[in-house]
């Protein structure tokens, strides 16, 4: 079976662990627990009759004082860059991470996930921010780790991008 490593990246508290838990275990918890280092999960995803064993590296959130260690990204085939849709400032962190990924391991497939879409009343991403994000030319999904909205489909999409570039 094909094995691929993907990394879930983004600022602290954007919902990386919740998205992974929803995708792998179909579970969601309201309680926020800060991820330390990296937690690795796996799930077999089938795309057009091809089964892929996805190794999902849920990496700690990046902030001003704690940058993501480059070695976590080693051997990664693709990334999901998560943005908190209720905190527009997390877009900037996403850009910074993505630029570092491009610099250190090259341009690998990426999907932007605008997470917490269930909190529509607190949504903070305006048209201008969305237009800026679209300039990267990467797919963008609005997701909710809570309701499961677009969670499976975004992982499926990334898997497809990995095996059929």
């Amino acid at each position: 079976m094909i094995q691929k490593k993907i990394c879930i990246l983004g600022a602290a508290g954007v919902g990386k662990t919740s998205l992974t838990a929803q995708f792998v275990y179909s579970k969601f918890s309201e309680k926020y627990l800060s991820t330390m280092g990296v937690k690795i999960d796996k799930k077999v995803v089938t795309v057009d009759d091809t089964s892929v064993n996805l190794m999902i590296w849920d990496i700690h959130g990046e902030d001003k004082y704690k940058k993501i260690t480059n070695s976590y990204l080693r051997g990664s085939a693709g990334i999901l860059t998560v943005i908190d849709g209720t905190r527009a400032e997390t877009i900037q962190t996403a850009y910074e991470i993505l630029e570092r990924v491009h610099r250190d391991i090259g341009k690998i497939p990426n999907i932007f996930l605008l997470n917490k879409h269930d909190l529509s009343d607190a949504w903070d991403i305006n048209e201008q921010a969305l237009a800026e994000l679209k300039k990267y030319g990467n797919p963008i999904y609005t997701t909710s780790a809570k309701t499961g909205e677009h969670v499976d489909s975004s992982f499926q999409k990334l898997t497809k991008m990995l095996i059929k570039p």
Partner: peptide, 20 residues
């Protein structure tokens, strides 16, 4: 160790801190 998938062989020394 699943964690080592895509990490080997070792082409240069590395450190993976705090692997859960």
């Amino acid at each position: 160790f699943d964690v080592l998938i895509a990490m080997l062989p070792i082409s240069e020394s590395f450190e993976l801190p705090q692997v859960q």
